[in-house]
Simulated scan of single mutants.
Amino acid sequence: MQNLLRAVWIYRHFIFSSIRNDLRMRFARSKLGGLWMILQPLAQVAIYAVVLSRIMGSRLPGVDNRYAYVIYLIAGMVAWSLFVETVTRCLTIFVDNGNLLKKIVFPRISLPLIVAGSALVSNLLLLIAAVGVFLIAGHMPTMSMAWLLVLIPVNLAFSIGLGLTLGILNVFVRDIGQVMVVVLQLWFWMTPIVYMPTILPEQFQSLIRLNPMYYIASGFQDVLLYGKAPQLDHLGYIAVGSALLLGLSMFLFRRANAEMVDVL
Rank of each mutant, 00 (worst) to 15 (best):
G34E: 07
S206F: 09
V8A: 10
L100P: 00
A239I: 05
L186V: 15
P201T: 13
L252V: 06
G98L: 00
A243E: 07
G227N: 06
M250W: 10
I238W: 05
L162M: 12
G33D: 11
S17W: 04
I71C: 02
W9Q: 10
G138W: 04
N257R: 14
A28Q: 14
A256C: 09
L35T: 06
L245Y: 00
L4F: 11
M213I: 07
V261S: 02
D222G: 07
M140F: 13
L264E: 05
A68P: 00
R108E: 11
V51R: 06
W36V: 12
N3C: 02
S249M: 01
S58Y: 07
R26K: 15
R174E: 08
P112A: 01
F220Y: 15
Q221P: 04
P107A: 07
C90S: 15
F158H: 04
R89D: 14
Q205Y: 08
L149C: 13
R26Q: 15
M190C: 13
T165W: 08
W80R: 02
L149K: 06
V133F: 12
A157T: 14
A137V: 11
A79D: 01
V87K: 01
A146T: 13
L149R: 09
I55F: 13
A146I: 15
N123I: 01
A137N: 08
A130K: 09
F251M: 08
T88V: 05
T86P: 08
W36D: 08
A137H: 08
S58L: 12
L235T: 02
A256I: 00
N257E: 15
G167F: 00
A229S: 14
G177W: 06
L200Q: 08
P112Q: 05
P141C: 10
S218P: 00
V179H: 06
G57D: 02
D233P: 00
L207G: 04
L232N: 06
L125H: 11
R29S: 15
N170Y: 01
R12C: 11
S159D: 07
I160N: 03
R108L: 12
L248G: 01
M260K: 07
A137I: 12
N3H: 10
L35C: 10
R6A: 14
L200H: 09
I160V: 15
T142R: 11
N123V: 05
Y237P: 01
T92V: 10
R89G: 02
S159F: 04
L42D: 00
M145P: 02
A243S: 10
M180C: 00
H13A: 10
M56G: 01
M250Y: 11
L232E: 06
I15V: 14
T92M: 09
L151A: 12
S122H: 12
M77Q: 13
H13P: 00
N123G: 12
I199C: 12
M180Q: 06
Q2C: 02
L101N: 09
I104S: 06
I19Q: 03
A229P: 03
F27V: 11
V78S: 07
P141Y: 07
I216D: 08
R24K: 14
I93P: 00
C90H: 07
F220V: 04
L248F: 13
V45Q: 04
W187I: 03
H13S: 14
I74L: 14
A243D: 05
D96T: 03
I216N: 03
V183Y: 03
L32R: 08
G117Y: 05
Y215L: 06
M140Y: 11
V95I: 15
L264I: 15
I208F: 05
E202C: 01
